[in-house]
Amino acid sequence: MRALLDYLSQYVRTLTVYGFAGSEKQLTELADWLDGYGVHLQTVETDGSGPGNVAVLHRDSEVLGACTVEGLLARADIGAETGDEGEPALDILSQFPAEVVVKRGLSVTEMVRVSREYERRALREGAGTLHAGFQQLSQIAGSEQTMETYAALVDAGVDAYVYGYPDTGLENPPFTVVEDRQRDLERYWFLLYDGGGNPHRTAALVSEECLTDETGGDADGAPGGPAGSYDSYFTTAPEVVADLFDLADEEHGDLLRLSA
């Protein structure tokens, strides 16, 4: 899944606030608001010699827009007067919607919620192919609701494939089980759905578990959350989903049944 994550990383956007002059409460509320757009917030202290309280939206070194923090707070309805400061925020806000939402350090509960949403898309369509990585097969075997969901997908007409390290067995499941015996996919929670020919139903979720030295991972790999959480990318954009299918076929074509 590394190639998929590298591809999706181009959608990571950050809002850097220089010389923030507001309260910690405003900063927390702003971070929560931006998180809804998949935008990461960071602050940089200044020496006061230049303009302060300025927000710059960027993707790596590419600047996407800038505005005053007052205008942004007013637009987000976070304790700021609208006045003349609201207008500069409009251009930068137009950059917030994204084809890919980026979330750092999602909990298992949050990951399940997103997965269920995408599984329901496939269930409503009742066609196409869905690939889901569970890391270990015990993750699906131990959840009656998940087993029922994937059985329902097959009954509805969806070709469902589940992947995981075979730490347990699954007795006669109606969906196709692919054993990841080499553990190539064990660090990743993913779901790819081709929409069954309907571009409005495509969906993809690609996540990497945040590991620490204690859990066998690399703490220098810049994971965004504690062990057991996930750095996640998810999208319903047809072009992006198609690219992810192609990349998955290139990287794991011997394992993923993408052409079945």
Rank of each mutant, 00 (worst) to 15 (best):
P199M: 00
A204S: 15
E186P: 00
Q42K: 08
V101G: 08
Y230S: 10
G253V: 05
D243R: 12
L247V: 13
Y165W: 08
G196E: 00
L72C: 10
D243W: 02
G195A: 12
G164I: 05
L153Q: 02
L130D: 01
V102D: 01
S94P: 03
I140M: 03
V54A: 07
L247G: 08
H40T: 09
L93I: 09
R187V: 04
F175S: 06
V112C: 07
S229N: 04
Q145P: 13
V114E: 01
F134S: 01
S9E: 10
L137H: 10
Y163T: 04
R201I: 04
G36W: 03
R181A: 13
D218L: 05
S61G: 08
A127G: 11
G157Y: 04
A21H: 11
D184V: 09
V114N: 00
P226T: 07
T212F: 06
T176F: 06
A248H: 07
D35L: 09
G65L: 01
P97N: 12
G105C: 09
V44Y: 12
A31L: 05
T68P: 13
A80E: 00
L256P: 01
G52C: 02
R187Y: 03
P166C: 11
A89F: 08
M147W: 04
S138M: 04
V56L: 09
S143I: 07
T235N: 06
L106V: 12
D231F: 01
G105N: 13
V240K: 02
R59Q: 15
E87F: 12
E110D: 14
E87Y: 13
G79A: 15
E62V: 14
L256F: 14
D243I: 01
G22T: 07
S61K: 13
V162Y: 04
L41T: 14
P174S: 15
T28W: 03
G195W: 02
L5N: 11
E81L: 15
P238N: 07
S107I: 05
A260T: 12
A21N: 09
D194P: 04
T212W: 02
